Simulated assay, not measured.
Amino acid sequence: MTPGSPRVYLDANRPERRAELAANLAAVRARIARACERAGRHPDEVTLVAVTKTFPVSDIRLLAELGVREIGENRDQEAREKAAACADLGLTWHFVGQLQTNKARSVARYASVVHSVDRVRLVHALERAVASVRSDPLRCLVQVRLDDEPGRGGADPSAAVELADAIAAAPGLLCAGVMAVAPLGVDPESAFARLAEVAQAVRSRHPEATWISAGMSGDLEAAIGHGATHVRIGRGLLGARPRNR
Rank of each mutant, 00 (worst) to 15 (best):
E81A: 13
D11P: 14
K82S: 01
L21K: 10
T47N: 08
K82D: 01
V51L: 07
D76Q: 02
S58K: 03
P56T: 07
A39D: 12
V51D: 09
N24M: 01
E65K: 02
V28Y: 11
A19Y: 02
A12H: 15
E16H: 12
D59M: 05
R34W: 09
A33T: 15
H42W: 08
E37F: 08
A19T: 14
D76F: 04
R18Y: 00
N13R: 15
R29F: 06
A79Q: 04
F55Q: 08
E20G: 00
R17D: 13
E65D: 13
R75N: 00
D44C: 01
S58P: 09
P56C: 01
A23E: 14
A33I: 09
A35N: 14
E37R: 14
E45T: 10
R18F: 00
V68F: 05
E78Q: 13
E37C: 14
R31T: 10
A30K: 13
L63K: 03
R75Q: 02
L21Y: 11
D11V: 06
G40V: 02
N74R: 11
T54I: 04
N74F: 13
D44G: 10
N74I: 11
L66H: 03
L10I: 09
L48A: 05
R69I: 00
N74K: 10
E65T: 00
V46C: 01
V57M: 00
V49D: 01
L48W: 06
A39R: 07
A30R: 15
V68R: 07
A26T: 06
E78D: 10
L62T: 09
E16M: 13
E20K: 02
E65I: 02
C36N: 15
P43H: 07
I32D: 08
A33H: 14
A26V: 01
H42A: 15
A12P: 11
